[in-house]
Design a protein around this nucleic acid. Sequence first.
DNA 1: TCTGGGGTCCTAGGACCC
DNA 2: TCTGGGGTCCTAGGACCC
Length: 398
Amino acid sequence: VPAASILHVDLDAFYVSMELLRHPELRGQPVIVGYAGPRGVVATSSYEARKFGVRSAMPGSRAKQLCPEATWLGPDFHYYGPASRQFHAILRDFTPLVEPAGADEAYLDVAGCERLFGDGEQIAVAIRRRVRDEIGITASVGVSTNKLVSKVGSDAAKPDGLCVVPAGGEAAFLAPRPVRDLPMVGAKTAERLNRLGIWTIGDLARAPLPALESRFGKHGLELHERANGRFDGAVATGRGEAKSISRESTFGEDIGDAGRLRAILRGHAERVAADLAHQGKSARTVTLKLRFPPFETLTRSLTRRVAMDLADEVHAGGVELFEHAWLDEGRRPVRLLGLGVMNLVPRARQLRLGETLERDRLADAVAAVRERFGDRAVVRAAELGEPGPDYSNPAFKA
DNA sequence: TCTGGGGTCCTAGGACCC
DNA sequence: TCTGGGGTCCTAGGACCC
């Protein structure tokens, strides 16, 4: 019999909780962390704001309509970063088998830790206490025999709660919940399921498998397994190497000036290339992303036989794609411009120290400043006027 | 109400090769 | 003259997650 030894630990309203530590006067009030600009969205909201219907990823205009009295704060990733690292360090005190799933959540496999720390539930209690005492914010935990059920459990326990699902009780625990609560069921899949008369996870668990497979393909089997509380993914330490790197920005107002767009592309290429260098990778494929009003997105990509590693090379690829795509689209103004790379391969040639400096002292100096003071410390003139996120912080996940 | 930014994974079609 | 059945690579789009 498998023991309930898989934990999912999730910090409650992480960004907001962090802001409340330094703005205690806002406690008990509706607070929203997000981009307040014309095209902003909610990153996280306090539970007081959620009472009004405010949710993550909601357009700012909608959130303001639902809850005009909320206090808005811009995200400050440099401030959240240390707390996030402290959180993961606490978890690793209990077991090395910690799988980070973003800045504010992680899975743990505590099988075999009983002699030291007790069973899954006792460890969950200890983790919650330590997070509260040492960081000053609350965490919710789900405990069960697998990652899927523990994840649903921690969501159900929020805020500041603990949910233990005993072995054998997985399906019964999931059954009454709406299908949307099942990870991998997003808005689209939920809608399709609802149209089939499937509203709860229990409905999905009882649905005939052939019917699901005919409508959802391989997805159908996966949905059915999950709805029955079965999930075999193991807790895996370490985050694999990145498979793609990208930068994009949405403009407060649509931009139709090719010169400005090319310059923004330049800025993106520099940041992508810097990440590439950091990770010791080169890229064979460049991808351009354009979004036109009202909300129509297009991507174009090209693959070269020789992998690219310099900002100039990434930029050249991006410009090539941009000229074609933008012309095809009748040079309409865009609301978003993005540039990315994929098909990453190890760098063939390791740059020696100082080599970059000889080749391009300006690029090197800019990279050094961005490294120390953040991505927005040096910005191309054409990029000015767009507040933009702080690209440099790896904790940025929301 | 009008939708951020950074990712992963999957699908499907077409080109090309054997 | 019309046609198989892989396999791989590339491109584009979409769903989903934090």
